[in-house]
Every structure is written in structure tokens, then in C-alpha cells.
């Protein structure tokens, strides 16, 4: 998959580790908890604790750090943009460090920029780690179970999970197809990477039309194939895999919860100890 080889987010890497073996519900809840805490944290110390936790999880899951960093690469410009925005257009006032025409860069704004940048990095890192250690199937299973109690209030837990399963199953297939069509059109002299923005947008028609036609054809075929195997929605359906919440899950949840609590304690309270 030549054009998409930078893509790491959403790529499950099948390795056997204690982290991989956890119940998907544990992984989903832990990630949700971490994401919430990241938004609540106000101090660098909190971010540092969360970073240590994530790195520890990644190491325990035997993910190569280089691979993880590669996954962050597409994010680089977004990060630069967010930081620049904060530095130049942050809160007025504070201690000016240097001045460039009408623009004043203050120490406060620089710190704030570093904080937001770091947080953005952690947000992406934590979701990336989760997708790397949770197979898409486990993820949807876990999500379906977690949502099941809400079925009574009208949340279509099964349909959502099935939609996700299929989306996840077909992402690699559609990416391959997109690449193939792109190359086929390039073989007919099409250019996707040159010219002004409107030119490039127009140049996408020969890619998008066949891709949509193909996707609809696939969707049709898949619907027929599912019906042929007696699929009629979530009712009466059982599952081969029954999820089990074990002692190791309890340990994992406790560790994450503890780290989250520490991250939220303001440094002043630390000094008080």
C-alpha cells in the first residue's frame, strides 16, 4: 500500500502481550478515562505522569517506539499550526520575551503553546496505542457490550457495532482499491500531485467515481453474502467469543485510575506532602 504507508493510526499489530490480552472493555474504558483526564489536567506535571504511563503501556505491549513516532509524523504540521496559533494569538499581557512588528511573544503564551502541543500529542498517542493493541473485532465487541445497557433507551448497539466491524474489515480493501485505481489512471496520464488546488480537486474525479461505484457494488455483494449466511440483525444472534473481565483487567483499571488521580492532583498538593 504505497500511498498509505505513513498510516499507523488504526493499524492493529498482532503481538502477544499482557496488554493485548486484556478485555477490550478495559482498554476502551481506560482510554476514555485517559482522554478525559487529559482535558482536565491543568499542569505540566499531570501531562508528565500520563506520558510515563503511556510509554510504559507501549513498552509492555512490545510496540517499537520508532514505529509509534512514525505514526505521529502526519500530525506534525497540525501540531506546528496549533503551537504557532497559541504563541502569536494567545492571551494578551504577561511577560514579553521578544517582539516582532505588532506581534508580541510572551513567556505565558509560549508555555501555554507547549502545554497544548504536548496535550495534543498525548491525545493522539493514547488513541494510537489503543488501536495498536486492540484488534478491530475486539474493539467492536467491547463497544457493543458497553453500549448494550443503553439499548433500552434506543441506542442501536448491535447495528453500530456491525457497521464498525464492516467498516474496519473494508478499510484495507478500499485503500488497496483506491491505490490501484489511482495507478490505473496515472497509467492513462492522470496527475494527482501537481497543479493548483482546484486543478487537483478536479483531478480526483477519475479516482472518486470508480471508488464510489466499486464501494457500492461491494456493499451490495456483501449484503447478499450476509443474508446468505442467515443474518437478520442483532436479534437471536449469539457470539462465539464471550468477553471475560478477569483479575488482570482489575489490575489494569486500578493502575490507570491511580495514574489518572495523580495526574489531576495539583502540584501544590504534592508539595504539601
Amino acid at each position: 500500500m504505497e500511498f498509505f504507508r505513513g498510516l499507523v493510526l488504526g493499524q492493529y499489530v498482532p503481538v502477544d502481550s499482557a496488554i493485548h490480552r486484556l478485555d477490550p472493555r478495559t482498554k476502551i474504558l481506560a482510554t476514555l478515562l485517559l482522554l478525559t483526564v487529559m482535558f482536565a489536567v491543568r499542569e505540566f506535571a499531570g501531562l508528565a505522569i500520563l506520558t510515563v504511563l503511556l510509554v510504559a503501556v507501549a513498552l509492555a505491549a512490545r510496540i517499537a517506539p520508532a514505529y509509534l513516532l512514525r505514526g505521529l509524523r502526519p500530525l506534525f504540521w497540525l501540531l506546528v499550526f496549533a503551537v504557532v496559533l497559541q504563541v502569536f494569538f494567545g492571551e494578551p499581557g504577561g511577560h514579553p520575551m521578544f517582539r516582532w512588528g505588532p506581534v508580541v511573544v510572551t513567556r505565558e503564551n509560549l508555555a501555554q503553546a507547549a502545554f497544548y502541543g504536548w496535550r495534543l500529542l498525548l491525545l493522539v498517542l493514547s488513541t494510537t496505542v489503543m488501536t495498536l493493541v486492540t484488534s478491530p473485532m475486539e474493539f467492536t465487541d467491547g463497544l457493543e457490550r458497553l453500549l448494550r445497557p443503553f439499548q433500552r433507551v434506543g441506542v442501536p448497539a448491535h447495528d453500530l457495532a456491525m457497521m464498525m466491524t464492516i467498516a474496519l474489515r473494508f478499510i484495507p480493501t478500499l485503500l488497496e482499491e483506491a491505490e490501484k485505481i489511482m495507478k490505473a489512471q496515472m497509467a492513462r496520464g492522470a496527475e494527482f500531485t501537481r497543479g493548483s488546488l482546484p486543478t487537483r480537486a478536479r483531478a480526483l474525479t477519475p479516482l472518486l467515481v470508480p471508488l464510489f461505484v466499486g464501494a457500492f457494488r461491494r456493499a451490495d455483494a456483501l449484503a447478499v453474502a450476509m443474508e446468505a449466511r442467515c443474518y437478520r440483525g442483532g436479534e437471536h444472534r449469539t457470539r462465539m467469543h464471550v468477553l471475560r473481565f478477569g483479575p488482570q483487567d482489575l489490575v489494569a483499571v486500578t493502575v490507570v485510575a491511580a495514574a489518572a488521580a495523580f495526574a489531576l492532583i495539583p502540584p501544590a498538593a504534592w508539595r504539601g506532602h
Partner: peptide, 10 residues
């Protein structure tokens, strides 16, 4: 088409 009838990712 082998690809259009496999539902699950495992």
C-alpha cells in the same frame, strides 16, 4: 469475489 463476502476482520 473473495473480498466481498468476508464480514469479519479475523
Amino acid at each position: 469475489h473473495p473480498d466481498n463476502q468476508i464480514v469479519a476482520a479475523i
